[in-house]
Nucleic acid binder design. Sequence first.
DNA 1: ATTTTTGTGTGTTATTCAGCATAATAAGAT
DNA 2: ATCTTATTATGCTGAATAACACACAAAAAT
Lengths: 233, 233
Amino acid sequence: MQERNYNADDCIDNPKSVFTVLTPKEKEFLKQNYTCAFYKKGEIIFKEGDKPLGLMILAEGKVKIFKEGVGGREQIVRMAKPVGFIGYRALFAEEHHTATAVAIEDCVSCIVDKESVFRVMRSNAELSMSIIQSFASELGFSHDRTVTLTQKHIRGRLAESLIFLKDTYGYEDDNLTIKIYLSREDVANLSNMTTSNAIRTLSTFAQEGVISIDGRKIRILDLTKLERISELG
Amino acid sequence: MQERNYNADDCIDNPKSVFTVLTPKEKEFLKQNYTCAFYKKGEIIFKEGDKPLGLMILAEGKVKIFKEGVGGREQIVRMAKPVGFIGYRALFAEEHHTATAVAIEDCVSCIVDKESVFRVMRSNAELSMSIIQSFASELGFSHDRTVTLTQKHIRGRLAESLIFLKDTYGYEDDNLTIKIYLSREDVANLSNMTTSNAIRTLSTFAQEGVISIDGRKIRILDLTKLERISELG
DNA sequence: ATTTTTGTGTGTTATTCAGCATAATAAGAT
DNA sequence: ATCTTATTATGCTGAATAACACACAAAAAT
């Protein structure tokens, strides 16, 4: 893999990470207590039932986190991006993982061991506060999703998912293409529908001029219309 | 209301509350910085869009927390019991409320003002840790619910909801009757189905001898069977 | 006590969407 | 290069469940 020479300290110094609240000394301490892992596209980072080993920070790449439901049907509950935590829910709940994480692209992840994280949290209240805020936001997101996925119709669910992907990963340089390339199956598993219906509905959106499709590249041509479809349900 | 004479300090000294990790001095501080509120059955405690004023501790009574979805359809996302927080998600996310809380029974709630809570959290890392653990568990629950409500069939969803209510509120002295009395509509809003279907499916369960119904009293006669229905989907 | 409202129960119809089949294409593997 | 497998695409059918209509009971208001 080409990013073998990734400088892992970057993710702790990254201004977008929650670690900005730490003192230089605390950051130094964390830097001395983590290891890095590299994952190829499609690789499993952790599985439902695994015990969390530490706090994983996604330094590079994109990750889907999903649960297996009825008949093995996947439901994606979160999409992670750098620099964000993965697997932190189980760690802080003192549980085994209740979801599986798979690399959507080649990934780099830094793991700070549990004891070191907890030690810094006890020494610096602001870190805990930041983590609490992250959890609170994430819980709000999860509640929103529950309502959306149960109540909206297929078109609304798909529209909302596309907007969510755009908000999470942003656009490519053309300001149109959503900066993540998912299989139709993943789009379906994110939106609570069958793959067939994801394909069908994406085609319909394209026919209506709301988006354009080029393989896995999805361009949002009419965001207003997409938002309207999402709101209508 | 008969519990006007409720001693509000109880909820901070309650051994089941997260405040057990506090020092006597910190508890004393909190006791000097809270007020109490009484709500009649059916009353709104807070509404979607309201700004959270402090940390609300449900001292007595039962509360449903729901979101309004497509066409005003309610989805219950949480059921609170004493001694637990309510409205804490919005408080810690620094957002306005994204859900509405309504008293299922007459309730007593203690509100510790935001600044005081934050001050104690900064002085005692264990409180933050406990709150983080609560959030992490709650998020896991929310993910579980998302999968259940989207993937299981009506019977499975209802069965799971009944088990959830039993686990949350326990049994009456007969060891059969679920210790909460919800309208059919609330059961439906908890289980993502229409009221008609909640009524129908409850009747079917009763015919099958899994439960027995007496108005809003629901007795679980065959928990194993109910669990099996829940697992099958 | 009587009216009004709210909640419960049941049957019928309409709609959405999952499930399945099949084909065409693309991507990997040998 | 060719075989194999995964992904994308489209059509058809049936099942699940929402929506609606209506009757009746219970609770609340007058």
